[in-house]
């Protein structure tokens, strides 16, 4: 088969993987492979080698200490649903609606993030949580805000030789959330729009994150800032101004804009 022609490396630990990554600049990291194996079928794809990081022990962290959640990039969605389902319910809801059981058994958080799809299911809750990603290379580690890490469709700030190893965020106190994914059907569907709203009663602020309505998942920061003014209509107008939906094979720009408004409005109703 076509994939047998691509050299395949199976490091046994993270430092081996980092060394390979540095050595083989045209390689791709293989974790769950649920996106990568589809993309590799494109004859124009230039991947020269595969480095298998699925199951690397250093990428399997799954913990909540106090209000801080740390997820190893190699954690699969199925394992998260078994072991981390109570960490952050909006993310749990997103993961439950992601793809299908067989894909959730293989696909990882790290893969969903570095694939940098505007419709990635885990991203709206993680954007709303102000998550941070931790990147490592043979030269060391760095922390980057998730919204700064993702640059555009299929583009991230990951540098040659770097591996995304962990995602980290603080779960706010007593928050109220509203999460919705609108897809064409109930399973195995890419989002037309996804939305995560958080209300933080301690400081009376909201966070609004939208998927599939722009080149990246979008936070509506200007609309969030209007929340304290109590003018729902102007907040909603701000949201519909901010989002940049398009007509494509899955939906229409006007319906997507309408959904952004509707879902935001529903969230505001629920927290009022």
């Amino acid at each position: 088969m076509w994939y047998e022609k691509i050299p395949f490396y199976a490091p046994s630990n993270l430092s081996e993987a980092l060394a390979l990554c540095q050595e083989l600049p045209d390689s791709a990291l293989l974790a769950g492979g649920t996106d990568l194996l589809v993309q590799l079928r494109d004859p124009n794809d230039k991947v020269k080698a595969l480095i298998n990081i699925a199951g690397l022990p250093e990428l399997q962290t799954i913990e909540r200490l106090g209000n801080t959640v740390r997820l190893g990039a190699g954690v699969t969605f199925s394992r998260f649903l078994q072991q981390g389902a109570d960490f952050f319910p909006p993310l749990t809801e997103a993961v439950r609606q992601l793809a299908s059981p067989s894909i959730r058994n293989k696909a990882t958080f790290g893969g969903n993030i570095v694939n940098a799809s505007p419709a990635a299911d885990t991203l709206p809750p993680l954007y709303a949580a102000d998550a941070v990603v931790i990147l490592q290379s043979i030269h060391g580690k760095r922390r980057v805000g998730l919204a700064d890490f993702i640059l555009g469709p299929k583009r991230s700030a990951l540098q040659t030789g770097e591996i995304l190893i962990q995602i980290e965020w603080h779960v706010p106190e007593n928050y109220i959330y509203y999460y919705r994914k609108i897809g064409t059907r109930r399973a195995l569907a890419l989002s037309k729009v996804s939305f995560c709203g958080l209300y933080l009663p301690e400081d009376k602020t909201i966070r609004l994150a939208y998927g599939a309505v722009g080149p990246t998942v979008m936070r509506a920061l200007a609309a969030e800032a209007r929340f304290s003014k109590g003018d729902k209509e102007s907040l909603l107008a701000e949201v519909t101004e901010m989002v940049q939906p398009i007509n494509d094979q899955r939906s229409t720009a006007d319906y997507r804009r309408f959904l952004c408004r509707q879902l935001t409005s529903e969230f505001l109703t629920r927290i009022s």
Binding site: T184, R185, R186, A187, L188, A189, L190, Q249, R250
Partner: peptide, 25 residues
């Protein structure tokens, strides 16, 4: 099951884009 042609090019030519009902539907 939405399948449309734009200038002769079918727009939904994979089962990711041309969706049929699943058991959950």
């Amino acid at each position: 099951e939405n399948l449309v042609s734009h200038q002769g090019q079918l727009q939904q030519v994979t089962l990711t884009d041309y969706l049929i009902p699943t058991i959950l539907d």
